[in-house]
Structure formats: C-alpha cells, structure tokens
Design a protein around this nucleic acid. Structure first.
Lengths: 212, 212
DNA sequence: GTCTATAAGAGGATAGAC
DNA sequence: GTCTATCCTCTTATAGAC
C-alpha cells in the first residue's frame, strides 16, 4: 500500500482520487446502473461489463450501495461542469439566452448520459435522498442561480422575479427533453427543438422589442 | 367460469371491468409499486398490503408484469380524468390560465399519487415502453392539445405557436413540482407556488395588458 | 490484488389442501 | 376461489486458492 495515501490532495472537494482499476469498475458500473437502475442491476453484470471479477469490485468498494453512491457523486459533479462551465453568462440577452437553451438541448441530445443520470436521480430519489440532494445542490441550484443573477442584471427584460423565471426557463427545457426523449414524444407527437426555442425566447423577451 | 365472459361491455375502451377482489389486489399493489418501483416490489409485499394470499393474486393476474400493467393502465386513465375533466377551458385568459395552473399544482400537492405515477412512468419507461406511450397519449398529448386549442382561439395573446407554448406552460409546472417535491427543492431552495404562478402568468400574458 | 467457487437468503411462481 | 407450504432461480456477499 502507498505511504502517501492519507495526505494526497483531492482533485475536487467531494471527489476522492481513483486508481485506474477503480476507474475501470466505475466505467462498467455506469453502463449498467444508468440503464437498469439500482434494483435492476446485479453485481455480476457490473463485473462482466467492467471486465473484472466480482471480488475485485468488493475489494475496492464497500458494497453495492457504496459503489452506486461513488458512481453517482462522480457523474453528478461531471454533469454540471459539462453543461455550464463553458458558459460565460454575459452578452446580449436575445443572443445569450438562446445560446444557453441551445447548448443545453444540444448537450443532452448528443450525450444520452445526462438524460440517463437525470432519470436515475429521479428514480432513486426515495432510496438515496442524499444523492438527489447532491444533484439539486450541484446542478439545479447552481444553474438556477447563474441564470437568475444574469436576469437580475438586465432590468430591461422587465422580469420581476428572476429566480422564478430562471426555474421556468430551465424547467421548460428539462420537461421538453423528458417528454421527447424519455416518454416517446419524439415519435408520437413530434415538436421540434426550434419551435420550443422560438416560443421560449418570445415569452422571455416579450418586454424588450417587437420581433415579427 | 361465467358464460358471459366474452361479451360483457367494457366501461372504458382500454379498461376491463374488475371484480371486487381484483380491486382489492390493485389497491394494495398501487401502494407498493408506486413507492418501490417495479424491480423493488416483491409479490409478498403486495399480498401483505392487499390482505390476500400470493396465490390469489396469481389466480387473477398472469404474473408480476401483468399485474403491473393492469395497475398502471388504470391509474394513468384515472389521472387524466382527475386533473382535466373538471376543467371547461373557456373564459378570460388572465383568469382561466391561472386557474389551470393552480388546479394542477393543487391536485398534485394534495394527492401524492399523481406525482408517484409520474415518477414511476419515467422510471419504467425503458422496461415498459407501452405504458410510457399510454401515459404520453392519455395525459400529456391530450393536456397539450386542450391548452393549445384554447391558446389558438385567443389571438389577442399574441402567441405564434400554441402547441410549443402549451408544452412550455405545462412543462414549467411539471418541472417545478418535480424539483420541489421529488428532488428536495422544498427544503433546500424553497420557491413558493405563487411566485411560479405569477411569473408564468407574466410571461404568457405579456402581450395583452400592462400589469404593474 | 485478482480470480473461482460457494454460502446465505430473497423473490417469483406453483402444487395441493380445503 | 382462497390459503399454506414449497420449489427453484437469481443475487449479494464472502472464503480460499494463486
């Protein structure tokens, strides 16, 4: 065992460093957990997917619950960074707001991992309240705060309650993706990305200039 | 076996009539399935909750899957009727739109069954696509159609795309409830019902009259 | 550290009494 | 039709070889 195990600096406050074997296990675990949920996942499938034996998993993680928590914490933190950290949040509202919405929809459409994580957080919000709370704190709260601060700094938009409006803004995007991608809206009642974007911009920017 | 089993009229197109024992089983099954999900539910717990033996369940339903499908179909159809069928959808927009939103939020807040069903539909949307599609068709599509027709019949609202706007309208309500009630937003970042209602009305009614 | 083999138990489904 | 008792598979977790 390494002598420095107790004093190494952590890359992120809540994220301990992982060895390569642990990364390999988490990679396999992600495939299975995100697809089949917690109860629907067996450790046999995780070991098969990760290409290691079951005992190896148990030597690195305490049990199924410990593995699941470590995985979700990791993916949750990566999720916020993937969506928001490339954004600057300053610029012309008519351009920036559309950019934020487009970025979100594109990221989620391209990378099904975001959507799978969101579904899993909802699914297991009763069994693992601490994971749901981490998600709320890390992704939702910070996203809402970021946008509401921007909205508050642009009084020309005529928005009286930036926090509530930010919740509505992101909420309409999330629910759109949920219906289209998870609940088979795409094939049963198609509604294009651009129509949602146009209507959302029209609602939020209503007080600024006539756009016809 | 009854002679008339093949020719009895059905109360609803997709809903076969249930005997009293079957109702009792479904009532117990609802408690467990809505709380623990499909994989997390054992037939032993269902039988205990329903107050019948396990074999009685298997004599009325083919297997766990058959029971689950019968239950969700029933609850899904009841859900739409519970939320929308009391609504008329005509009247002054400033009043009616707020009424719709308030009704939805109140119903969901009062009766956690609506929320539990929604979570379960999302959770099991991969395992049971036909149930998710039934929900989309029965609840989401009809809700969106109802509202979009109303919006289209009120050109003074200045809404260029009623369908997309209806999706945004309901979507923002659904996501608000999801965050507050399922993801512990209520305790971590409280945001009152009235603030969401006020901001949503302000967005949708922006083109009609100055409200300050 | 990693693997194979196995113990211990839970859960879906059925057989047979009444 | 309903209940009690049972079968058998699958799953978590561990023991022991290398």
């Amino acid at each position: 065992m390494p002598k420095t195990s107790g004093s190494q600096p952590e890359t992120l406050s809540r994220l301990r460093a992982m060895t390569q074997k642990q990364e390999q296990i988490l990679q396999g675990a992600m495939q299975v957990f995100l697809r089949d949920g917690y109860a629907g996942t067996s450790m046999d499938r995780v070991s098969a997917e990760a290409g290691v034996s079951k005992q190896t998993i148990y030597s690195h993680f305490q049990d199924k619950e410990g593995l699941f928590k470590a995985l979700i914490e990791r993916v949750t933190i990566a999720s916020f960074q993937g969506i928001f950290c490339t954004e600057d949040l300053h610029g012309e509202p008519a351009i920036l707001l559309r950019e934020i919405a487009e970025t979100y929809l594109t990221k989620v459409a391209e990378n099904s991992e975001y959507l799978a994580l969101f579904r899993l957080i909802i699914t297991e919000s009763q069994r693992f309240p601490e994971l749901a709370k981490l998600y709320t704190q890390t992704v939702i709260q910070r996203g809402r705060l970021l946008l509401s601060q921007y909205l508050a700094s642009h009084p020309e938009l005529g928005i009286s309650d930036p926090e509530a409006t930010a919740q509505i803004f992101f909420g309409s995007l999330v629910s759109y993706v949920m219906v289209q991608e998870m609940l088979y809206g795409k094939e049963m009642m198609p509604l294009s990305r651009d129509r949602i974007l146009d209507s959302l911009m029209s609602l939020v920017l209503a007080h600024t200039s006539k756009d016809h």
